[in-house]
Design a protein around this nucleic acid. Structure first.
Lengths: 167, 167
DNA sequence: CATAATCTGTAATGCTATAACGTCCGCTAC
DNA sequence: GTAGCGGACGTTATAGCATTACAGATTATG
């Protein structure tokens, strides 16, 4: 039954399904459902919160249910894990970008976490990735994946606190 | 009693104590003990493993005991938390570098985690920090602290697997 | 159909971290 | 000196995050 999620989300889910097919991976109903929950959420979402939402239509769902789905989605690069928040966000690029088959599909992403409003922004800055890779290489290290998460103030909160300094 | 730890660790502890004094922070016996455990460990160490070791000489120690000490040490920049491993490592720079008073003492560090041997290397590459800050600034974001952790193969494991390709 | 592989259900457990409260100790002011 | 204060620590309980282990169901494949 299509229509569980917003029109935009359903569109992304369809694209994700196509991408998975091309890779020979199966975006099952459960996995599609969990991905939908992640994509529909306004902010990074914890596994147990996803579990609660999943239970609204899938009685008897348990932690392994959601964690197995999340593991699959992570492997496919359809979602990211934000370590600092122990939570998960959708990767728009992952839902729309095709890759070669049989590869790892993790994207190089960076997250900006506002300590004021909690908003999380995803970047995909090639320079950041490249400079880190170069620095690692100088240490004899070859990178396969990286977690880059910055905490600070987003533009909105920064200008707000500039107007009300002690805010 | 000095001599609980290796000579090198005791030296670092003494330096850390001096640094704390200059800041008006108290490196109590408990905190010194926990810092010693972290510094003496060959690898990043989880809070509950530190707790077990702490208990060998401090009966009745509980999770808050070690977490409060770790929070203090993090604030002082004497240790780092490795998010991917939910564990803690000493920051050599933090134990030896004096700072201005009343400031935040978090250092900009990057970690290289070998997926083969598990070894963790700390980098303090200024370029990585700078490029990330610049990229964030372009998004209107000002960074106060960042987690940068790369996973991959260290030099030793890379050459080992090159000799035995299917290793 | 037989078989293997994959996905999911289910129960239990383990690991990581914090809340809430009380006590002790050292410091300052009176 | 002692009353009051604040920081550090003890203690118990609980919250939050993730995995293990095994069984049943489903699907692909020879």
């Amino acid at each position: 039954m299509a229509g569980e999620f917003s029109r935009r989300t359903e569109g992304l889910l369809d694209q994700a399904e196509t991408v998975c097919e091309h890779r020979g991976a199966k975006l099952t109903e459960l996995r599609r459902h969990v991905l939908g929950l992640v994509l529909d959420a306004a902010a990074p979402t914890g596994a147990y919160e996803l579990l609660d939402r999943l239970r609204q239509s899938r009685r008897g769902a348990a932690p392994p249910t959601v964690y197995r789905a999340l593991d699959f989605l992570l492997e496919q690069g359809l979602i990211h894990r934000v370590e600092r928040l122990s939570s998960f966000v959708g990767c728009v690029a992952g839902c729309t970008t095709g890759h070669g088959e049989g590869e790892s599909h993790t994207h190089a992403a960076q997250f900006l976490i506002c300590r004021q409003c909690g908003k999380v922004t995803e970047m995909q800055d090639a320079d950041v990735t490249a400079v880190l890779a170069r620095a690692a290489k100088e240490a004899g290290f070859s990178i396969s994946g990286a977690t880059i998460e910055a905490e600070g103030l987003c533009g909105a909160c920064r200008s707000a606190s500039a107007r009300r300094p002690a805010g």
